[in-house]
Structures are given as structure tokens and as C-alpha cells.
Design a protein around this nucleic acid. Structure first.
Lengths: 235, 235
DNA sequence: CCCATAATGTTCTAGTTGGTACATTTTTCT
DNA sequence: AGAAAAATGTACCAACTAGAACATTATGGG
């Protein structure tokens, strides 16, 4: 792989990429990053030791400091990499279907699947929240990554409301939060929920049912007219 | 406080409770437990040091080992205490209203508020999930605490469906999961969401709107008939 | 009032962990 | 080929941490 001598996606600025891989900084960086994500996700920031990362790496501990300088900087690199992943993936969601309900369905399906298939991303985000989002707050890159999606959702919601597909509407951020919450929780709290209610939330059947459930709640939110005889205002 | 010489709620088995509080095991235990919950919630299991707990306690580190033997046992005590708290509180939710939609509303409101007001409980649960629910799985007490609520929810859902209040129904566990997910996420991911979308999710206005949003989704789920022209089956 | 015991304080240690100093090999450029 | 620079390996340390050893005080029954 990468034996064409072409530039790699990594941050290396060398003119010519070496063909032999005895010393391979890009590979080393990527290796460290992948192992670090796995470890930080599983054991949290404090629970992860640089030694444990190094042990699972093809290179030595020295390399972690060589490329990432310190534990917090390594963590930050992992986190930004993770957020970049979901934001890029979101671009491919189809939100311009003729029937906006189909767009919302696409959104739910993407969100559910993305989280379900990437538990270590979910755990990274959980870790950040336990840490009061210290690293997310400090990263301009992460904070500037979300605008596109909410704007597209807003467009979709407006279309659905104006064309009479949705009886109600809500803000794009609220919609995004609802869908994300349901998709996220399905993974983030899988361990305790599975243990307490004695179900296997990873099984295809349960997973399928849950996805359908989420879709019903989300579409129900946009569709319902329950004003008849029951006020939803809080007393 | 507790100057009547009556038995305290703690595990002490002394016949007579001391009136002076120079040595006060119940108080010491409770103090340690509260501080420990706060610390474990904020910094996770690995991130919390016994020394840091001791420093915030009125007593010394020695007492932590005196009453709780080890770090994992202290953690387990904190966790069981936290779960006991919510299960007991759940008993007071009114789920037998004439209008089952009101029951569901009560449930949503309770769940939302309980989590919102107890971020450290939420964080404990997050920590457990990051740890693959190791302690929850090992605690029979926690696992046997949930039955009452789901049974009551099921009764409420059946009544609502049979009496025509709900156009659809679902299992009690699904309903519980949906409501919990939305309420839980609102707290668990507050930090990253607030940072990324630049909103203050702790403000009363945002909080109120969010609660309403959740209620609409949940009731919408039970109410909607969207079979007209749009199938929710996955293709 | 005295003593067994419960409750608390102080000091130390063995093991870990983030990070560094120093040494060595590999690659690139001329 | 040979020197400079990049990449990697090894050995080590200072700080921290869970827990234990040892010492002391407070309490309540007789």
C-alpha cells in the first residue's frame, strides 16, 4: 500500500515519500492515533496510560512523545479526528427528498447507524462530557464543524411544514438533538441498560426495533395534532 | 439534628445513638459517600484519588478505608446509593391518571427533572457505561430495582391503547428507554452540545422548551397514525 | 472511674505513570 | 559516499497513589 511514491494524507511535508517502510512516520502516527482512540474511549482520559497505548502500538512510547508531545495533545488530536469523521460523513445524508418525511428518515437512519457502528466515538464524546467538554471547548476546529447539517435540516423542516407533510415543526437544533439523543443513548447506555433489563441491545432484532421506535417518535413529533382535549402546556 | 437519640438511617447497629458528635460514624460515612459521589462523577473511577476525596472530607483518608475497605468497594457503595435514589423517587410518579396521556406527561416530567437536577447521578451512570457496566452487572441489588416502574408503565400504556387515547402502543421498556434517553442526554451531553451549538442548556427557557419538545415526541409516538401514504418500514 | 473497643490521626511504602536524557539507526540530499 | 536530519529504541526519574502500619483519642457499659 502506498508504494506509488505519491503524497499521503498525513501532515508530512516531504517532497518524496519513501518507498520502503522501515521508518514510516505516517504509518506510525496513524497507528498511534488509532490505538490511542481505542484506549481513551475504553478507559477515559485519566484511565489511559501512555504506556498502555505504547504497548499496543507497533512502535515504542518514545514515538508518542515524538509525534504528539504530551498526553493532552495526543488526546486532542484523537478527539478532533473523531469529530471530523462524523461531520464529513454527515455530508452524504440525503435531505432533499421529495417527501421530507423520507429525508428525516434518512437522517434518523444515518444517525442511528453511525453511532451504533462506532462505539468508541460515542465513548470519546462521553468522556469529553464527563470532563465538562474541556477539550471540545478549546478546539475551534470542532466548534466550527457543525453548521452545514443544521442548516440543511432547517431547510428540510421548513419544506415539510409548508407543504403540509408535517403538522408541526420545530427548530433544526431541537430536531437534531432529539435524533442524536436517541441514537447516542442507544450506544452510550447500552451496557447499563442491557445489564439492568437483561436484553442484548446489540442483537439485530432489538437494534431494528429500536431504530423503528426512534423513527416513530421523531416523525410523530412532526406529525401529531394532539390539541384535541389535551393540552401539552405544563401546569 | 439527630439530637433525639433516635436510631439513624445509617447502617449502625448501636442500641443508643450518641448525642455528642465528636465521633459520629453515621455522619462520617454519609460525608465520605457524598464527597465520593461528587468526585467519582466529576473525574471518573480512575481519575478519582482517595486522597482527593479525603481532602474534601471532614475526616481523614484513614476513615475511607475504615468504612469502605477499598476504592472499588467505596465506588460500589456510591453507585448503589445513587441507583437506590432514583428507584425510590420513581415510586411517587402518578401513572394512574384518568387520562393516560397525563400519566405519560407525569412520567416525562419526572424523568426530565430528576436527571436535570442530579448531574452527578447522570455522570455516575455515564462512568459505569464507559466501564462496560462492570459494577452494575456485579450488583444484584441494582439489577433487581427496576421491575416496579416498567410494570406500571405497561399498565398505563395498555389502558391508553384500549381506551383509544393512544393510536399506537409499544413495550414499556421501549417507552422507558425513549423517555430516559431524551432526559438523560439533555444532561449527559450538555457540555459538548452547549459548546458546539453555543447555547446555555441550563437556562430555564431552553430547559422548558426542551422538556416540551420531549413530551411532544413521546406523545407523538403514541398518538400518530402516519400510515397514510408513508410507510415507516425500512426498505 | 476504668477498660474494652470503636473511631480517628499520622507516617510510611511499594508500585505506577507521565515525561526526559541519551544512544542508535535510517533516510535524504548533495 | 558522507553528513545532516529524521525516526526510533533504552534506561531512567520525580511525582503520585492505593493501601498498610502504627499510634492515639473518644465512648459507653459495668
Amino acid at each position: 500500500m502506498n508504494d506509488q511514491g505519491m503524497a499521503t494524507q498525513g501532515g508530512s511535508k516531504r517532497k518524496y515519500v519513501r518507498l520502503k517502510a522501515t521508518n514510516d512516520p505516517d504509518e506510525t502516527r496513524a497507528d498511534i492515533l488509532a490505538v490511542a482512540q481505542e484506549q481513551f474511549a475504553r478507559h477515559g482520559y485519566a484511565g489511559t496510560t501512555i504506556d498502555s497505548i505504547a504497548a499496543k502500538t507497533k512502535r515504542s512510547k518514545r514515538m508518542i512523545y515524538y509525534y504528539f508531545s504530551s498526553k493532552p495533545k495526543l488526546y486532542k488530536a484523537v478527539l478532533e479526528n473523531a469529530y471530523r469523521g462524523i461531520r464529513v460523513a454527515e455530508e452524504s445524508i440525503r435531505l432533499d427528498e421529495d417527501d421530507p418525511r423520507q429525508s428525516i428518515k434518512n437522517l434518523v437512519e444515518f444517525c442511528f447507524d453511525y453511532h451504533f457502528e462506532r462505539p468508541s466515538f460515542v465513548k470519546m464524546v462521553m468522556g469529553e462530557n464527563l470532563n465538562d467538554a474541556r477539550f471540545v471547548s478549546a478546539s475551534d476546529e470542532i466548534k466550527n464543524l457543525h453548521f452545514p447539517l443544521t442548516q440543511r435540516i432547517e431547510k428540510c423542516l421548513r419544506k415539510g411544514y409548508e407543504n403540509g407533510y408535517f403538522g408541526r415543526t420545530c427548530t433544526a437544533v431541537e430536531m437534531h438533538m432529539t435524533i442524536t439523543a436517541l441514537s447516542f443513548f442507544n450506544v452510550s447506555n447500552q451496557a447499563t441498560f442491557s445489564a439492568i433489563f437483561d436484553i442484548d441491545m446489540k442483537s439485530p432484532a432489538v437494534c431494528r426495533a429500536r431504530k423503528q421506535e426512534i423513527l416513530l417518535a421523531v416523525l410523530g413529533r412532526l406529525d401529531t395534532k394532539l390539541d384535541d382535549g389535551f393540552s401539552t402546556e405544563y401546569r
